[in-house]
Design a binder for these strands. Structure first.
Length: 309
DNA sequence: CGCCTCCATCCTCCACTCCT
DNA sequence: AGGAGTGGAGGATGGAGGCG
């Protein structure tokens, strides 16, 4: 990448940092904007001041990941405001709307089989059981489980108080008896002692630092397979427990507002992802579409009879 | 070989804007 | 005013590969 482009990119990323972007977002912007500048070079634009609309459109289409478009839009707007480029080209960057997705869910029976597949005769099994119960029973996110500290658990009051890592919103969850037992068992019998970590869940091998979300996912996949649950066409990360818990509550007529509170959402719209599961269930009760007739049938067959209406 | 990390991509969720 | 749609941030996921 030419020196002038590298400097521009660093300036933009500094601006984003000052604007309050977290490290993950900065990393992503670095990747997308960097690729964008490389694509422009390949299209013959070695100085972004000479950029044109055709090059922008072609560079956008070179991205396999369409999420990049929104990032490029912001980058171009920044360049325009800084008078680096003459026009606000952000308006010509195409928009991408994600297709309608139905979340993967598992039945209560499958989740029970998943829990029973965890072999608690080993220390790692004791840890995994305690860790994964928080996901299957409470729908906690993997980031919140990995970051869970002793301060956040009230063993006397039987409650868990966390600030959600993703949304930074506080959330209170019940410390269910089976979760409390599993946690006590892990802390007393399986958790490595040679450390000063305040986080509860640790790696079982040295260095005994806090477990990562990737390690939690790894364990999840392993127990899904061990339980003999078919995951070939479904997602099988920790978030599926969240979806499953939500759909189970929805199907048991639990009000959306209660589901929302259990999952820790502040925005009522957030629950719409889980309400999609309802739409799939409703398909089972759909009545057959009547055969077209009259004017509509003529229209479908390419006829012109409707023109006279 | 099991446990785990890293990186690229995908998905979730909040907040803002637009429309009725 | 409030519901629907959209943009954007950031966590979750999947796959490849490292390490003890």
């Amino acid at each position: 990448m030419p020196e002038n482009h590298a400097v521009l990119l660093e300036d933009y990323l500094s601006f984003c940092k000052q604007d309050g972007n977290r490290s993950g977002t900065i990393k992503r912007k670095r990747k997308f904007c960097g690729d964008f500048l490389i694509f422009l070079m390949a299209l013959g634009c070695n100085d972004i001041r000479d950029i044109n609309s055709t090059q922008i459109c072609k560079a956008c289409l070179m991205f396999h990941n369409k999420d990049a478009w929104a990032v490029i839009r912001m980058f171009l707007k920044y360049l325009y405001k800084k008078n680096v480029i003459e026009y606000d080209y952000s308006t010509i960057v195409p928009h991408y709307t994600r297709p309608f997705m139905v979340p993967s869910t598992y039945s209560e029976d499958e989740i029970l089989r998943f829990e029973n597949a965890i072999d608690q005769s080993s220390k790692i099994g004791i840890r995994d059981y305690a860790m994964l119960l928080l996901a299957t029973r409470l729908g906690m996110r993997s980031g919140d489980i990995a970051g869970l500290t002793f301060d956040e658990i009230d063993f006397e009051g039987n409650s868990i108080h966390i600030v959600q890592e993703k949304t930074l919103q506080p959330q209170e969850l019940p410390l269910l008896p089976e979760i409390k037992d599993a946690l006590m068992n892990y802390i007393e019998n399986a958790r490595p002692t040679d450390n000063d970590e305040c986080r509860i869940f640790l790696r079982q091998n040295a260095p005994y630092q806090g477990i990562t979300t990737s390690a939690i996912r790894f364990a999840t996949t392993r127990y899904f397979r061990k339980a003999g649950i078919d995951i070939s066409d479904k997602k099988h990360g920790l978030h599926t427990f969240r979806s499953s818990l939500a759909s189970s509550m929805v199907n048991n007529q639990v009000p959306y507002d209660v589901v929302r509170k259990v999952l820790g959402h502040t925005d009522p719209n957030a629950i719409k992802h889980y309400a999609k599961v309802d739409i799939e269930r409703l398909r089972e009760y759909a009545i057959a579409v009547p055969a077209p007739s009259g004017v509509f049938e003529a229209f479908l067959n390419g006829g012109r009879s409707y023109a006279g209406l």
